[in-house]
Design a protein around this nucleic acid. Structure first.
Lengths: 224, 224
DNA sequence: ACCTGAACACCGTTCAAGT
DNA sequence: ACCTGAACACCGTTCAAGT
């Protein structure tokens, strides 16, 4: 009983409890459970049953910890094998990217926003470049094409993960309210399209724009 | 001299010093000067020579204040007059959007990320829908097309405003270092495209992807 | 080498008190 | 009606001290 208050210093005789990996894994789980803003160094330490300051022996600071969170998510992309059919391969890559983003929706803003130069972050870039090069584009144009597709993916996925569930079609009362708001907006085209603006089938939307882009790229390849 | 310490309560006899508009305008300027994270309620109050808590009489909280910042920026889009030529009109709208985003680069993440349903936020939507409807698309497809273009714009502009100046081509030493990093990445296509991946002419990139999308949309209109 | 406590310099926001 | 001070419950991070 005399000894029950917390010790100071490293636990006697034990091996290191904390590792960078354990911290980052806990951070990913915590982001998904509580959201990005709710993940604090103090809260994360609490969850790991460790003093806040112990974290700083394994990670530099919160910002770089979030970079490492981003990397973990990125590493979970399951890169599909290439078939050689341009349209199919681009589509499969896009789907793989969407899948991992939707698997970690609260981490998604990190993945879609931070541009990292690490090997993990470059692996998907390599895969996409490979597909575009195989379609016959020279290296410089391949980069342009990749950046265009990537920009579209980032924009559409950012909308998807930050959209309210109402917008996706659940909660029909919300959709109804939204629709009448748009109808009453005094903006004629907004009013006219209100039923379509009030909801968003994210998958359909994703496929629509992706198809547009792929079609345009195929066309450009033929003409070149 | 006896009277020089700060008073409590509203300044005697004066009219209200603080207005919602004055606060929001100061917030926009402060975001651009110091960056988003550096804008705190306390700092903003200091800048306005006012007690922190006085702000709360005019704005609900920091989150909604940032929504109002977003609206101010959005209100500064100069919507171009339509010519009736689909390609030109979409292009002009995209350029107008890019211009306002680059005019407030530190506010840009707000504009590109928050989806607001206000009249100010719907005005550009109305303009884009009008262009697409004029090209002969029915209301439902017009919404799809708009969302595709918007997704692309958001993605490409988010990259542009958050890219380091090195990436844009300034600082040739940085570009050089980046290029050799990519070349040494052991990823063959990344290495091959290294000179193009190491830099980014944002305007050229913007135009490339936009042209792809517009071309694809024009094609779809003809086929339909 | 690794862990910890106290301390520093901040936050956003509530609430009662002033004029 | 509008402004303010003190107070509450938090932050990230430095630094010296422990084992």
């Amino acid at each position: 009983m005399a000894d029950s208050k917390p010790r100071r210093g490293r636990p006697a005789g034990g091996r290191a409890v904390l590792t960078r990996e354990r911290i980052v894994t806990a951070a990913v789980a915590m982001v998904e459970e509580l959201g990005l803003d709710a993940v604090t160094m103090r809260g994360l330490a609490r969850r790991l049953n460790v003093d806040t300051m112990s974290l700083y022996h394994h990670v530099d600071n919160r910002e770089t910890l979030l970079n490492q969170v981003t990397e973990v998510v990125l590493a979970n992309i399951e890169l599909p094998p290439a078939t050689g059919v341009f349209r199919d391969d681009v589509h499969a890559m896009a789907i793989a990217f969407r899948r991992v983003v939707l698997r970690y929706p609260h981490c998604a803003p990190l993945v879609l926003t931070r541009q990292l130069g690490s090997f993990t972050a470059l692996a998907p870039v390599e895969a996409v470049l490979s597909i575009i090069r195989a379609a016959g584009f020279p290296p410089d144009r391949a980069v342009h094409v990749m950046r265009s597709v990537l920009a579209y993916l980032i924009g559409t996925l950012l909308r998807e993960v930050s959209a309210s569930p109402t917008f996706s079609g659940q909660n029909l009362g919300g959709v109804e309210r939204r629709r009448t708001e748009l109808t009453d907006s005094t903006l004629p085209h907004v009013a006219e399209s209100a039923p379509y603006l009030a909801v968003c089938d994210h998958e359909e939307e994703f496929e629509f724009g992706l198809d547009l882009l792929i079609t345009a790229v195929e066309l450009q390849r033929q003409r070149q």
